[in-house]
Amino acid sequence: MNQIPMTERGAEMLRSELKKLKSEDRPRIIQAIAEAREHGDLKENAEYHAAREQQGFCEGRIQEIEAKLSNAQIIDVTKMPNNGRVIFGATVTLYNTSNDAEVKYRIVGDDEADIKSNLISVNSPIARALIGKEVDDVAVVTTPNGEVEYEVVNVEYI
Rank of each mutant, 00 (worst) to 15 (best):
K22D: 10
S23F: 04
S23L: 13
S23M: 14
E24Y: 02
E24M: 04
E24V: 04
E24W: 04
D25H: 11
I29V: 11
I30S: 02
I30D: 14
I30R: 06
I30T: 07
Q31A: 14
A32D: 09
I33P: 06
A34R: 12
A34I: 09
A34C: 02
A34T: 15
E35N: 14
A36C: 08
A36H: 07
A36R: 04
R37I: 13
E38N: 14
H39V: 15
H39G: 11
H39D: 04
G40M: 14
G40D: 04
G40I: 10
D41Q: 05
D41L: 07
L42T: 03
L42H: 14
K43W: 02
E44I: 08
E44V: 07
E44N: 15
N45C: 14
E47T: 10
E47V: 03
Y48L: 09
Y48I: 07
R52G: 01
R52K: 14
E53R: 10
Q54W: 07
Q54P: 00
G56P: 05
G56I: 09
F57N: 15
C58P: 09
E59D: 14
G60P: 00
R61Q: 07
R61V: 04
R61T: 06
Q63W: 00
Q63C: 10
Q63K: 15
E64I: 02
E64N: 10
I65D: 06
E66Q: 05
E66K: 02
E66T: 13
A67E: 05
A67S: 09
K68V: 11
K68E: 06
L69D: 12
L69I: 09
I74G: 01
I74A: 12
I75P: 06
I75V: 12
I75F: 07
D76N: 11
T78W: 09
M80Y: 00
M80N: 00
N83Q: 09
N83E: 15
G84K: 11
G84W: 02
I87C: 07
F88P: 05
G89H: 05
G89I: 03
A90C: 13
T91S: 02
V92Q: 06
T93H: 08
L94F: 02
L94A: 03
Y95T: 12
Y95A: 06
T97I: 14
S98P: 10
N99Y: 13
N99G: 09
D100C: 08
A101S: 12
E102K: 13
E102I: 08
V103F: 04
V103L: 03
I107W: 01
V108Y: 07
G109P: 05
G109Q: 08
D110F: 10
D110N: 11
D110M: 06
E112W: 07
D114L: 10
I115H: 11
S117A: 15
N118V: 05
N118P: 00
N118D: 08
L119K: 11
I120A: 01
I120F: 02
V122N: 12
I126D: 00
A127L: 05
A129C: 02
L130K: 00
I131K: 00
G132V: 01
G132C: 08
G132N: 05
K133P: 06
E134M: 13
V135M: 11
V135R: 01
V135H: 05
D136L: 13
D136G: 06
A139I: 03
A139S: 09
V141F: 01
V141S: 00
V141K: 00
T142E: 15
T142C: 01
T143M: 01
T143N: 01
P144L: 12
P144F: 08
